[in-house]
């Protein structure tokens, strides 16, 4: 009887940890999405493509150099560069036109994921964690997988850093002001276009970081995973409120946890549960649970 209870506790902790880790990965994707949307009014449908590019370039670099750190850094740099190119070449010409933006970023998504297959081939790549993050340890009778903890730590670190920058630096102030009213910021003599570019790059870098972290977590990476995670990120952005950065982490954890628990107890309804959550939010609070923009 007691044994059963302990096992259940074990399962509960594992699912929680699992959900938190997945939530952090979704957060890394959704944070960029929501910041870019809040500031530039652009919903980037190519964000999943940047995520997948981060995963492939990072995994490949890790496999060739043997250093996980270089892999992660390489992925982030890839994300930053791709973000820069995307903003300059694809997004800039269509600022202000919503339909064109949506269409063009989806086109970019298509090109990005096809290019992945051109560069690394159409088959999935396998990815493993580095030795120092492999395996698990026991804490008070509960087995904790190291890599999951690592993802949660990285995600949390990114959140704290970005939140600090947003709240305590001049550039953060400009970004927050831009989310509220970009015309006003521009009227005050600040080059908002430069800020757009910077935010887009940082958002892409975060997405790429999420991608490379996913590799060892799921074991294999493939080109379609960009879209899969992007859909979850969209759900998160809607639930958290479009443009709300703190909202994105809370909603991401919510979606991650509900996904992990549902996948264990009622596996067939995992995605449906999140969709239902989104539908309810859309009906009653279209500005999101934590957002203020409609």
């Amino acid at each position: 009887m007691r044994k059963g209870g302990e096992e259940e506790l074990d399962v509960f902790f594992n699912l929680t940890l699992n959900g938190l880790a997945t939530g952090m990965l979704i957060f890394l994707l959704a944070a960029g999405l929501t910041l870019i949307f809040g500031l530039m009014d652009v919903l980037n449908f190519a964000h999943g493509g940047l995520f997948a590019w981060g995963a492939y370039s990072g995994t490949w670099l890790y496999a060739t150099t043997g250093s996980f750190i270089i892999g992660i850094l390489g992925a982030v740099v890839t994300g930053l560069i791709l973000g820069l190119i995307t903003e300059r070449v694809i997004i800039k010409p269509v600022y202000g036109n919503h339909v064109q933006q949506i269409l063009i970023t989806l086109g970019l998504m298509l090109v990005l994921s096809e290019l992945l297959k051109v560069v690394w081939g159409p088959n999935q790549l396998s990815a493993t964690a580095p030795d120092f993050l492999k395996g698990s340890f026991e804490l008070g009778g509960i087995i904790i997988i190291k890599y999951r903890l690592f993802i949660i730590a990285v995600g949390f670190l990114v959140f704290v850093t970005v939140q600090y920058v947003l709240k305590n630096t001049k550039i953060g102030l400009v970004v927050r002001a831009g989310v509220m009213n970009k015309e006003m910021v521009q009227a005050l003599g600040i080059n908002i276009k430069k800020v757009f570019m910077l935010v887009f790059m940082v958002g892409s870098g975060m997405a790429a970081l999420g991608g490379v972290l996913l590799g060892p977590y799921s074991g294999v990476i493939h080109a379609e995973m960009g879209m899969e995670f992007a859909i979850l990120a969209f759900i998160v952005v809607v639930i958290g409120g479009m443009g709300s950065f703190p909202g994105s982490i809370l909603a991401a954890i919510l979606v991650g946890l509900s996904g992990s628990f549902m996948a264990y107890y009622v596996p067939d309804l995992a995605l449906a549960a999140n969709m239902l959550l989104m539908a309810v939010v859309l009906i009653f609070r279209p500005q999101g649970l934590f957002g203020w923009k409609g």
Partner: peptide, 15 residues
């Protein structure tokens, strides 16, 4: 809502 929402929701529904 804004056009983004329809694009996103249809994408999610299709999946």
């Amino acid at each position: 809502l804004k056009s983004h929402f329809y694009a996103m929701l249809t994408l999610a529904f299709a999946s």
